[in-house]
Design a protein around this nucleic acid. Structure first.
Lengths: 228, 228
DNA sequence: TCAAAATGTCACCTAACTGTCACGCTACAA
DNA sequence: TTGTAGCGTGACAGTTAGGTGACATTTTGA
């Protein structure tokens, strides 16, 4: 599944330019020019990254940023602030508020792409192009291959997607609903308990007797994949 | 422990300026003007972040960056590239090589500080506002993990919420009713004394024999978590 | 086409968690 | 010192959430 980016920008032309560039890079793009709506869109379906203009309607960008950071569900989404205000004070304020990067207009679209990519590389390790490997577990998204300690493992399609979903989001507790949304798709009406069953199948597939189970059950919350 | 930063910069004056600023912000700073030496220093003791000048002796900055990214041990250390070269191509190349941020000279030291902070916030949650830690007690809301003195602790769901509630409000006496409202929800009709029981369970979970109990009972008022 | 693999549910089971209580101790005030 | 309200503690029964094996159905691939 492609990484998704939400563009929050009320300058129509710029918004389209960004969306076009991002799409060309293979991102799923959604956009809005309205701060209030942006918050709703994020809550409805959290993107992997957000490009956020400082000067937008309804709610100023920095306030959107603050709101997003306050809510634990959205607190870790990378945010690039975008602005015409080049003043040092503003940049520092933006960064202190929780933005991960701060780009001033005019900017180079290609540089912005590179910055987005750098951010995603950090928050979603798979996007760096490298294989995902944590400890002795390796997952190659391209060839659909999984290994543990060099030994090839056999995973079904769903187990593979599930494992990738976890490896792209290590050290985070993921609720069953999040897992369903991410692995099965937003519009699936599948029982939450089905996740349990697939977790069991995944565990069975990747754990040899005596090896540590990398998937941790977090009671009343979901599952998490532990790294290191 | 303070976060540590390695400054790789061969302009002596700039290097000192950065070191001074970083120290003032509470970082442990080491520095060198030599790329080869930088690699050795990182391998000897990995810093939490690196400020890396593009134009340094022996090995160009971008090559240092590449080397660091190649080694699993050092691949995830945040790197800020620092350079006089303002060309878009260079910036993009730097970012694609694995740098997390790219700042061109002349730059504002305060902004650079803010960018470093933003990076650390992401890579070492314990430094940013995300993670709660007091003394030897760490609580990571994202991964639902609690540690004391590095050792992982097991807490039940309610104990976890209770501890987080306390850590979010350190040094304050909290009444049983406040705790019920905050941890159980406003509309719970639970006996106030139940709080006592969960406090006991929490204490049992986080205190090893011989360790100081961070939870203080305030007679006739409630409980407080002491940060010393 | 047909067997093997994969998938989504379900019922059952167990371990973990929860809220309450009774009892005893402790700190504080008179 | 003593009485008492407040708190700690161990026990316990009720509840809940997750693990598990089984199974019918669908999908896949030879």
């Amino acid at each position: 599944m492609n990484p998704s980016v939400l563009v929050v920008e009320d300058d129509r032309a710029l918004c389209d330019l960004l969306s076009w560039n991002l799409s060309a890079e293979g991102y799923d793009v959604r956009s809005t020019g309205d701060g209030e709506e942006a918050l709703l869109m994020v809550r409805e379906q959290a993107p992997d990254a957000i490009i956020l203009d400082w000067m937008i309607e309804q709610v100023p960008g920095i306030e959107v940023c603050r709101q997003l950071r306050k809510d634990r569900e959205t607190a870790r989404i990378p945010i690039v602030m975008l602005t015409a205000r080049g003043e040092e004070e503003d940049r520092i304020r933006g960064l202190k508020t929780g933005a991960d990067d701060y780009v001033t207009k005019p900017f180079s679209p290609r540089e912005l792409m590179a910055r987005i990519e750098a951010l995603l590389r950090r928050s979603r390790p798979s996007i760096g192009g490298d294989n995902l490997n944590f400890g002795d577990l390796e997952l190659d998204p391209a060839s659909h291959r999984v290994r543990r300690g060099g030994e090839a493992l056999h995973l079904g399609p769903t187990e593979f997607r599930l494992l990738r979903y976890f490896m792209e989001r290590p050290n985070r507790v993921l609720s069953r609903q999040q897992i369903l949304d991410g692995v099965w798709g937003m519009d699936s009406d599948i029982d939450e308990r089905t996740v349990d069953v697939h977790i069991r199948r995944l565990r069975k597939a990747i754990n040899r007797p005596g090896e540590k189970d990398p998937i941790r059950t977090v009671r009343a919350a979901g599952y998490a994949m532990d790294v290191s």
